[in-house]
């Protein structure tokens, strides 16, 4: 028996594949990008963010943010370039389908502290690589 794939189904499948292939950061909605990190540039908060990163994120993404296996690196250009709001959005919503747990159990200030640390480290890494 022969099956024909209708164009509509093909578009849905290709769209789903494209979405799952991209970075989670790219899926952050516009309102997430517009949020301002209340801890941006705050050295104490960045220190707290590093402590939280080592506890919550390092087992999967590596102590230096180098990425482990399929888990993406976080000391990267994509993190340096993205808005802090997108990072907080990914931490809050997660995506169990993509293997990224939600960190909504952390209070919002702690998620911003992690975002502040990630932004600073990614920016330093980019400067060092040039």
């Amino acid at each position: 028996m022969r099956y024909r794939l209708s164009p509509a189904i093909l578009i849905v499948i290709l769209s789903a594949a494209a979405l799952s292939a991209g970075s989670l950061l790219q899926e952050a909605p516009a309102r997430a990008h517009s949020k301002v990190n209340p801890y941006a540039g705050d050295k104490t908060a960045i220190g707290a963010g590093e402590k939280l990163y080592q506890r919550e994120c390092a087992p999967c993404h590596g102590r230096a943010g180098e990425g482990i296996g399929k888990r993406p690196p976080l000391a990267s250009k994509s993190v340096a370039d993205v808005s802090p709001g997108a990072i907080e959005w990914v931490l809050r919503t997660g995506s169990s389908r993509r293997g990224m747990p939600s960190f909504s159990h952390l209070p919002e200030p702690q998620r911003w502290q992690i975002a502040a640390f990630l932004k600073q480290r990614a920016a330093l890494k980019q400067r060092g690589d040039r």
Partner: peptide
């Protein structure tokens, strides 16, 4: 439930 402090401290 909720934690007693919302922001984390920098020290361990």
């Amino acid at each position: 439930s909720r934690p007693l402090a919302m922001a984390a401290r920098a020290d361990r």
